[in-house]
Simulated scan of single mutants.
Amino acid sequence: MARPRPEQLANATAKQLAPVYLITGDEPLVVQECCDIIRKSARAQGYTERELHHTDGGFSWDDLYHAASSLSLFADKKIIEIRVHNGKPGDAGSKALCDYCAHPAEDTLLLLVMPKLEKSAQNSKWYKAIDGSGDIVTVWPVGVQQLPRWVDQRLKAAGLNADSEAIDILCAKVEGNLLAAVQEIEKLKLLSDNNFIDAQLMSSAVMDSARYDIFGLVDKAISGDCRAAVATLHGLRSEGTEALPILWALSREVRALANIAEAQYHGESFDMACRRAGVWDKRKPLVKQALHRLKLRDLQMLQRKSALIDRSVKGAASSNPWSLLLDMVLTIAGVQVFSPRTQRMELRI
Results as ranks from 00 to 15, higher is better:
V30R: 07
Q45Y: 06
W61Y: 13
K40L: 10
P28A: 04
A42N: 15
Y21S: 06
L29M: 05
R50I: 09
A42T: 14
Q45V: 08
R39W: 01
V20A: 06
R39N: 08
H53D: 08
C35G: 08
T48V: 09
Q16S: 13
C35N: 01
T24R: 00
P19H: 01
I38W: 08
R50W: 03
G25S: 09
K15Y: 10
A44E: 15
D62F: 02
C34Y: 02
C34L: 02
G58M: 01
D36I: 08
V31E: 01
T48L: 12
D26K: 01
G57N: 12
R43H: 12
L52S: 07
P19F: 03
S60K: 04
H66W: 06
F59S: 01
Q32W: 10
Q32H: 11
F59N: 04
E51R: 11
E51P: 00
D62Y: 04
Y65A: 14
L22P: 03
D36P: 03
D36R: 15
L52E: 12
G46P: 14
I38R: 08
D62S: 11
L17V: 10
E33W: 02
I37D: 11
Q32S: 13
D26R: 06
L17R: 13
D62Q: 11
E51D: 11
F59R: 04
G25E: 03
F59I: 02
L52I: 15
A42H: 12
A44V: 06
L22Q: 07
F59L: 00
K40R: 14
L17H: 12
A42M: 11
H53E: 07
I37Y: 00
Q16P: 08
K40A: 15
L22N: 01
I38G: 08
V30T: 15
K40Q: 14
H53C: 02
C35V: 04
T55Q: 03
C34A: 15
G25K: 03
V30H: 04
E27G: 00
L64E: 09
A18G: 13
C34H: 05
S60Q: 09
L17F: 10
Q32M: 10
L29K: 05
Q32G: 12
V30W: 04
A18I: 15
G25Y: 00
C34S: 15
F59P: 00
Y47G: 07
Q32D: 12
V30S: 03
R39K: 13
V30L: 09
H54R: 09
E51M: 11
Q45L: 10
G46A: 08
V31S: 03
S41K: 01
